[in-house]
Design a protein around this nucleic acid. Structure first.
Lengths: 190, 190
DNA sequence: AAGGTAAGCGAATAATTATTCATTTATGCG
DNA sequence: CGCATAAATGAATAATTATTCGCTTACCTT
């Protein structure tokens, strides 16, 4: 017998992401996805029971990916600020490199495809970020405000920056990146 | 003869906004909109040539509305910080009260409905915000960084805050609002 | 190497949704 | 008041899109 091809799932994901970033979640069809992926429409249904499942799976995958890289190189024994910087940079770099995921996740949040279950699992993934900010608060380096509020503020700013950068299709210079980090840090610092 | 009813356009807009905030741009049909608005599907085509035009018109309208209220009560002869605070508050208040517009505009940005023409007109509306930040820079109160970058940062943070607030369905307390303003101001200030 | 099993295909079908249109209803105008 | 005109209706139609299915192809197992 023939086995499922894991690379094909990846192919499908990439096709869907690309199309959503270009035309929005409202503008993609199963036909579009299969064409972009270079496979037959029917094959999509070998890997997913339908459009809903495809999008839920891609959503879960996208969220997990972005969190996974965030703490790469983070050393808790380091002082807080450079540690925070490492994580912040990881997130920014990831979002810039995976712009399509950023758009896709955003579009999914208010959409009929994502189930509450999928949405809740995504929420849980944010726990390490809360821990990080709380550490900064314990060390009196970060404002004693609602942690969720601070996180929201930073993530919103980052997301918008990435979108704006993509639109203006400049590459974000090191100078601009450092500057934006300063904006974030000045906002957070006690 | 019978005349077109301006309130009906408003009714259609409200219905569409409500549905998009609930189910996303991908999840609304002309049938849904007419049902929610309490009118017949055919009537939609009296007021709009089709779905594309409806959504483009609503997008343009939503953007214009939010800008229109931003400078209410702003007095250029006032010092910069309180003036900036007034505008910032106007924007926050508007976004909180018109959450559905926030979601709608966001979803539209990457969608097959919005024409480049509509998108460009929306961009032009941002000019007064640039002017405001530039004033702060001239007075040495705001960091000498790319103005667009600063604006993007602030607007992204505000948007995310509004979305997060809506999700957690708490009302944003005065304390939290003041706190978030401090985050913004600390980020911007030279 | 051969057989069996599941992937892969894409045209056909089913379901959904945008749009039209014949008809009815409301209202401004003489 | 009654006609003319355009809005309003919603069932019918057209267009689009998700999903299925009979068939072919690839490849794993023995």
């Amino acid at each position: 017998m023939k086995l499922k091809d894991d690379r094909k799932v990846e192919l499908i994901y990439q096709a869907a992401l690309k199309l959503v970033a270009r035309k929005g979640l409202a503008g993609i069809t199963m036909g579009d996805i299969s064409r972009e992926a270079g496979i037959a429409t029917g094959t999509l249904y070998v890997y997913f029971t339908g459009k809903d499942e495809l999008i839920n799976a891609l959503f879960a995958c996208s969220r997990a990916n972005s969190v996974q890289v965030a703490f790469r190189g983070y050393d808790p024994s380091q002082p807080f600020k450079p540690g925070f910087r490492t994580v912040w940079m990881n997130i920014l770099r990831y979002k810039l490199q995976h712009f399509e995921e950023v758009v896709f996740v955003e579009q999914c949040f208010h959409s009929p495809y994502i189930t509450t279950e999928t949405r809740e699992k995504a929420r849980e993934l944010a726990a390490p970020f809360f821990d990080l900010i709380e550490r900064g608060q314990q060390e009196q380096l970060v404002k004693q405000a609602d942690t969720g509020l601070l996180l929201t503020f930073i993530m919103g700013a980052l997301n918008e920056l990435v979108k704006q950068t993509h639109y203006s299709n400049e590459t974000l210079s090191k100078r601009k990146i450092d500057l934006t980090f300063d904006l974030c840090w000045d906002a957070l610092k006690a």
